[in-house]
């Protein structure tokens, strides 16, 4: 029978150093993950971990990896031409078709820009959708800003707010937590708006609260959860919250569902 545990070895064709600890790897791959889906990435002998897909195209995918764990540190030392093992894609994607006739606000904190990047790219590739897209990003400091050049390009097309937590001498943009800039997001019609919020649990909670205070309803907010998923197949139990499995029922959840997922 088909064995979903068997990964495919994919060659690394390009590596971009995004920050001191974050790298974007381009891999040869035949899979076409949907926006917000993830793959299980491994190096035999080191281990396997769920990583969200930050770029897709014909015959390739991109993964943006922060070197903080056992596996991600090992991946960060890989060179072009070496292989990473991939299985997937897994999980429920952002319902991008639902967003098509609405204003879409994407709010992401830190490396959470990675799982929303393909969604943003697809919105901005379409003139009509681009006009109805707003971007709000928060980073710790100027050095941790991901996809800097690409964000600059995005900011020429749509309202793009980028903030860093505290003032820094090399930064002349906005400062303060992402929550303090929600008020400035241009939302023409509250009822015709969807908001995607991705980041650490605390960030998602308080950013959502700011959008609620602007009149956005729970049913209009979409979150993406991060858990230690050892399988991605609904078996290992690590990502179960209440009766939901983040790997098969998520990682994308609408706020009114996510609200009842108590760890």
């Amino acid at each position: 029978m088909n064995n979903a545990w068997v990964p495919v070895a994919n060659r690394i064709t390009d590596i971009i150093k995004e920050t001191d600890v974050e790298y974007t790897f381009t891999l040869e791959s035949s899979i076409r993950p949907d926006h917000g889906q993830f793959v299980e990435v491994s190096i035999p002998g080191i281990g396997e971990a769920p990583i969200s897909v930050s770029g897709t195209g014909d015959g390739w995918i991109q993964l943006t990896i922060r070197a903080v764990g056992h596996l991600t540190c090992a991946i960060s030392t890989c060179k072009v031409g070496e292989q990473l093992f991939i299985r997937g894609p897994y999980g429920v994607a952002f319902p991008s078709a639902l967003y098509e006739n609405a204003t879409l606000v994407v709010a992401a904190g830190g490396c959470a820009v990675a799982p929303v990047r393909t969604l943003i790219r697809s919105r901005l590739a379409d003139k009509k959708l681009a006009a109805n897209t707003r971007l709000l990003f928060g980073f710790k400091n100027p050095e941790s800003v991901l996809y800097k050049d690409e964000i600059d390009e995005w900011s020429k097309l749509v309202q793009t707010i980028v903030t860093i937590d505290k003032e820094a001498c090399s930064w002349n943009g906005r400062t303060g937590l992402i929550t303090s800039h929600v008020a400035d997001v241009d939302i023409p019609d509250l009822s015709q708006t969807h908001v995607v919020i991705v980041g650490p649990p605390v960030m998602m909670k308080y950013t959502s609260a700011q959008f609620f205070s602007r009149g956005i309803k729970q049913e209009q907010i979409w979150l993406s959860f991060e858990r230690r998923m050892a399988c991605g197949l609904g078996k290992c139990g690590h990502c179960k919250i209440d009766n939901s499995y983040v790997c098969v029922d998520g990682p994308v959840f609408r706020y009114d569902k996510a609200l009842h997922l108590i760890d």
Binding site: G45, A74, A230, C236, G237, H238
Partner: peptide
Amino acid sequence: SCFSVHDISYGHDSNSKIARRQR
């Protein structure tokens, strides 16, 4: 029924791809 997945490397260095994956 929860499990974790671990790799055992049989190589002499960490880059060796000779390994076992187990739960």
